[in-house]
């Protein structure tokens, strides 16, 4: 039967050591929770597409507002008395640029929610008290392992790596 070994670490170095040991021993990491963004984790899933989303939505917002400006002044202006107002494009740029920056932020935020799998207020991970510590002062690791002897080995490795608390959870 597969069980879950949960461990909390007081320091990043201990957490990285424990993580390294688990990967070396070919255990499956089920979850990791950190109190701050560690650069030691390196690149990985999570950040893909955020810049692109911000750029695309920013350009769309800026071009969209610029188009609205041109349309409302040069084409849809209600009075046509000897011609409509001139296509004064330099004066249309400031509002378009400002609005583009805002829509870029909105696009980036939406993509951030998507990549970070946010807006899910309830998640199975919140059932574990250890996960709540991750937002305060602990690094938390969840490792899948077989019950019995194997689970005890995992707990011992994690404790040796510097975990200050370990326990087994039966899913």
């Amino acid at each position: 039967m597969t069980v879950l070994a949960l461990a909390t670490f007081p320091h990043e170095s201990a957490y990285l050591r424990g993580r390294h040991e688990m990967v070396t021993h070919e255990y499956r990491l089920v979850g990791e929770w950190l109190p701050y963004g560690s650069e030691a984790l390196g690149p990985g899933p999570g950040a893909h597409g955020i810049r692109a989303a911000a750029i695309v939505s920013g350009v769309l917002g800026a071009v969209g507002l610029f188009a609205l400006t041109v349309w409302s002044m040069a084409f849809a202006y209600p009075f046509n008395s000897g011609g409509r107002p001139l296509f004064s494009w330099p004066a249309y740029i400031p509002a378009a640029v400002e609005f583009g920056a805002f829509t870029a932020a909105v696009g980036g935020l939406i993509w951030f929610f998507r990549e970070g799998r946010l807006t899910r207020l309830h998640d199975a991970a919140f059932e574990f008290a250890e996960v709540a510590r991750a937002s305060q002062d602990r690094f938390v690791l969840a490792v899948a392992c077989d019950g019995g002897e194997d689970a005890n080995t995992v707990l011992a490795i994690l404790a040796n790596a510097g975990a200050d608390h370990t326990r087994l959870v039966t899913p």
């Binding site: 929770w33 984790l41 951030f112 990549e115 970070g116």
Partner: peptide
Amino acid sequence: AMGWQGTPEQWRAQERLHRTLAAIA
């Protein structure tokens, strides 16, 4: 908090967006 857990994926996403917004700001 929108269900923030502090997973590596969330931290990467948060830091990438924060820097991107800073570059626009």
